[in-house]
Design a protein around this nucleic acid. Sequence first.
DNA 1: CCTACCGATCGGTAGG
DNA 2: CCTACCGATCGGTAGG
Lengths: 209, 209
Amino acid sequence: MARPRSADYDGKRQAILDRSAAVFAKHGYDRASMAQVAKACKVSKALLYHYYVNKAELLFDILQAHLQELLDAVAAVSKTLPPRQRLRALVGALLEVYRDADDEHKIQLNELSKLPTKRRNLLTDMERDLVREFADAIAAVNPAIGADKVLLKPVTMSLFGMINWQFMWFSDGKPLTREDYADLVTTLLVEGAAALTPAQASPKRAARG
Amino acid sequence: MARPRSADYDGKRQAILDRSAAVFAKHGYDRASMAQVAKACKVSKALLYHYYVNKAELLFDILQAHLQELLDAVAAVSKTLPPRQRLRALVGALLEVYRDADDEHKIQLNELSKLPTKRRNLLTDMERDLVREFADAIAAVNPAIGADKVLLKPVTMSLFGMINWQFMWFSDGKPLTREDYADLVTTLLVEGAAALTPAQASPKRAARG
DNA sequence: CCTACCGATCGGTAGG
DNA sequence: CCTACCGATCGGTAGG
């Protein structure tokens, strides 16, 4: 009989994921040694290599789990909400996942490029799916921008810029909550975008302030 | 007699700065070996250590020069422009410096934390000065937000998010130019922020979409 | 301005 | 026989 997998295999794996993310975020992927990671995870280095064939696979698993969490949160937002409320809910969903994922977010921004091409492409595909959800939501709120081949991308990327830069300055416990910031971002995007489109004979003229 | 400095000392130093930034941006600071950097700069490793006492000083010099260029560009924007035109010019100034500084920008985002505390603090002070210029310009355009202790920071950071995320997706030669994007960002910020303030009995209510 | 070389440490793997 | 794990150590490379 084959020896069965440890009863707590998945639990252990998740614990390794969380703790190693903290080490990678703090010291950077290259500087964090597998010995350091193992110590933080309270396992031996050999056990770490039992779960992951190499360091890059550990990094990949951290980022895949994080991106899947983002995609799940976005998928859970009702598709029947009025467009603006749906966009607001999508922004709030991302910011809520980020509450406990500052480490994973930093790793995503800083270390993704260090994965081998195939693994990296799997993750950038997930990122692209996430972006598409937001682009569609923006198009639903503002059909003129949705139909504009030139404007939709920069407007969508402006939204991601605001959301993904949040980790640089935001801290919980201050007067402005995550919900407040989701409102603020949605207002800047929606009301700002509305000002782009009225005189929209050509995309260029529409974009000019 | 001490041997005089090379006639082209500063020119060589600048060339090292540019080429090493490319290497650090491509492979990451930790992975890029000093041997690799020396080869890209077409100098010996020993000469590299003649200009910089260690690897971190090279990184510091790259980032200091970059941040100084940003501060200079911002300082060159006329202070007598009408508020909105001034904000637009400030955004355009940053995006214009970024045209030839993608490498330096990536390094600033990814590797700043790897410098020793004192060096890092020198650079974060420069970043703070840059942020203050923009916060002041936003306050001039929208005095209600300028007077709001809760809103000014997140609104300013939203602007930096849009500008500093640009390197992730923008490419020159597409229909949307840097000038177009400066217009777009300024419009989102100014018209969006205007929608935050009318009902501004309390900051929280004002931020709610 | 170079080659030669160091003390330290890395990611990954061996036997059991 | 299998998988789950450990203490010890490998060959190769880094910054300086």
